[in-house]
């Protein structure tokens, strides 16, 4: 469903992700744990390209979200001038590929690597890419700081994206007129109201976010993402900015989602919660997934020394 391949992310000279790969299956709940600053948010934000990976690819439902990473395609490397030059000097093909990968030898400018290389890169991209705005419509995201739209009421917050993107779809299908627009708005409103009712905040539909508590804001942020009918939900420490007494209400909404079979990726410091809802737990350390497994393995029988150390501090 969602796959990251050999993801690298540098911020200037700071190397945050160093070749992370993982695949999230449909219906799976994956928690990402790790020390603060280890790159958990960066990893999550690379999944919907709020951060642009330096290298590597992100795939969502068989579609490519990033540019093609030549290092992930041996046939592309083989088409490059750099590879041809190395093998012409008598270097073994596999050794040449290994050297090119290890030393990042491919020229960034495609034409410098020759026509064949450029054509192959373009072909792979054209066959697989999906527009990022479209991909994101199927990936909900929940932020630590809620990020409700301050200039919109609660109901408008939830309806905004479905209506806006819905209108775009209608226009594209040449089916945009008064009636279809009215129906879209009515449907979006009905759905938004149902979602609000579900989290017990129907009475807040017409207030502005500034009047809400943190817990209320975050529950609304969750249903705002759900209003787009996403296939996967990404959570970046959804309870870390909350007063302790409000954490429970947010986790409850998330637990319910998990029970309903939503695919979820959750960066969290709530170890009890991660243990309870996750199918798989990833421990991120030093820009990589240092250990992963089911919650039982990760929490009860940790192998990685840093993970043991981390757990002893947080549990």
């Amino acid at each position: 469903m969602l796959e990251i391949k050999n993801l690298y992310k540098n911020f200037g000279s700071l190397k945050v992700l160093k070749g992370v790969s993982t695949s999230i299956e449909k219906g799976e709940v994956v928690s990402i744990i790790g020390a603060s600053g280890s790159g958990k948010s960066t990893m999550l934000r690379c999944m919907n390209l709020l951060e642009t990976p330096t290298f590597g690819e992100v795939w969502m439902e068989g579609k490519l979200l990033t540019p093609v990473d030549p290092y992930l395609h041996p046939e592309v490397i083989k088409a490059s001038n750099t590879f041809k030059a190395l093998t012409a000097q008598g270097m073994d093909e596999n050794a040449a590929i290994a050297k090119i990968k290890a030393e990042d030898l491919l020229q960034e400018k495609h034409n410098k690597e020759g026509k064949e290389y450029k054509a192959l890169m373009d072909k792979i991209y054209k066959e697989n890419f999906i527009d990022i705005d479209h991909a994101r419509r199927k990936m909900g995201m929940v932020f630590q700081q809620f990020n409700l739209f301050n200039n919109k009421t609660v109901l408008q917050n939830i309806m905004y994206a479905p209506v806006k993107t819905g209108i775009e779809e209608l226009k594209k299908a040449k089916n945009y007129n008064k009636e279809t627009k009215a129906k879209l708005i009515a449907d979006s409103k009905e759905r938004a109201e149902a979602l609000l009712k579900r989290i017990g905040l129907a009475d807040k539909a017409n207030v502005y976010p500034s009047t809400l508590s943190g817990g209320q804001k975050q529950r609304i942020a969750i249903v705002r993402a759900l209003a787009m009918n996403p296939d996967v939900m990404l959570f970046d420490e959804p309870t870390s900015a909350l007063d302790p007494e409000m954490i429970g209400e947010v986790l409850d909404v998330m637990k319910e989602l998990a029970k309903e079979g939503m695919t979820m990726v959750i960066v969290t410091h709530e170890m009890g919660f991660a243990r309870e809802v996750s199918d798989r737990v990833l421990f991120v350390d030093n820009g990589n997934i240092a250990e992963e497994g089911n919650p039982e393995e990760v929490f009860s029988k940790p192998k990685d020394a840093h993970l043991k150390d981390f757990l002893s501090k947080v549990l």
């Binding site: 994101r136 932020f143 700081q145 739209f149 994206a161």
Partner: peptide, 15 residues
Amino acid sequence: VDKGQTEAARSLGLS
């Protein structure tokens, strides 16, 4: 204006 406002909109698939 908080960068989170833009990020929230972009994460929902808005241009």
